[in-house]
């Protein structure tokens, strides 16, 4: 464990709290892409299958995995029941079939090993790298976003972005660490996808302005 990885995981936790807080206080999930949320649940379920097979790694690891799966499922539960009337499917129209299909193809072509567990792990890594697209697409369609929603997107993106210095750190100082090419490539791609958003977030939201596309 190093500071970047810890901050990354913390950022992920914060993003979850922001999203749930936004929905609970405004009693609405407007501006939040249901499709992205479904993709994230798929990501965590497929990645953390090892909760049931692998020997115990650490309390931290197990706890975080359970929190990510549970909070993701809870978000979807809220969006599909209590706050369903506030969700507008007409602007949440990204075709996620392509993201699911593309991730599956990548996972099948370059798995770390030819086992179900390793293919599903790779699938989840690729899918995570693009899972934000329906959300970003929705922001683009409406041309603006609530500030709280942009905080959520930022914190979620910062999670993977912070993993990049973590990998550099592990590569340099952690002799036992085995860098995982798929995670690094997908992590870089994911951060690149966010870069436009990061830029607008930094130049507008951080200066107290509304998130609005030029």
């Amino acid at each position: 464990m190093n500071i970047f990885r810890m901050l990354g995981d913390l950022s992920h936790l914060i993003s979850i709290f922001i999203l749930l807080h936004k929905m609970q206080t405004s009693k609405s999930c407007s501006g939040v892409s249901f499709k992205s949320q479904v993709l994230y649940l798929v990501v965590y379920v497929f990645r953390y299958l090892d909760l049931f097979t692998n020997p115990f790694m650490s309390y931290y690891n197990t706890l975080m995995k359970i929190v990510f799966i549970a909070s993701s499922a809870y978000t979807i539960y809220l969006m599909s029941t209590v706050f369903k009337p506030t969700h507008d499917p007409a602007i949440d129209t990204f075709k996620i079939e392509y993201l699911l299909g593309g991730s599956l193809v990548m996972a099948l072509l370059f798995p770390p090993k030819w086992t179900f567990m390793e293919i599903s792990w790779a699938f989840s890594i690729w899918l995570e790298s693009v899972a934000i697209l329906p959300q970003l697409f929705m922001v683009q369609r409406t041309g603006e976003a609530e500030t709280i929603t942009t905080h959520y997107i930022f914190a979620l993106g910062a999670y993977r972005a912070l993993y990049i210095p973590n990998w550099i750190w592990r590569y340099m100082f952690d002799k036992k660490a085995k860098l995982e090419t798929i995670a690094v490539v997908a992590g870089l791609a994911q951060t690149l996808l966010y870069s436009d958003f990061f830029y607008i977030y930094w130049t507008k939201v951080m200066k107290g302005k509304k998130f609005q596309l030029p």
Binding site: D9, H12, D50, M57, N61, P112, W121, Y163
Partner: peptide, 10 residues
Amino acid sequence: EKKEHPHDEL
């Protein structure tokens, strides 16, 4: 040694 379980990140 955790060779068989390489995915130690989240």
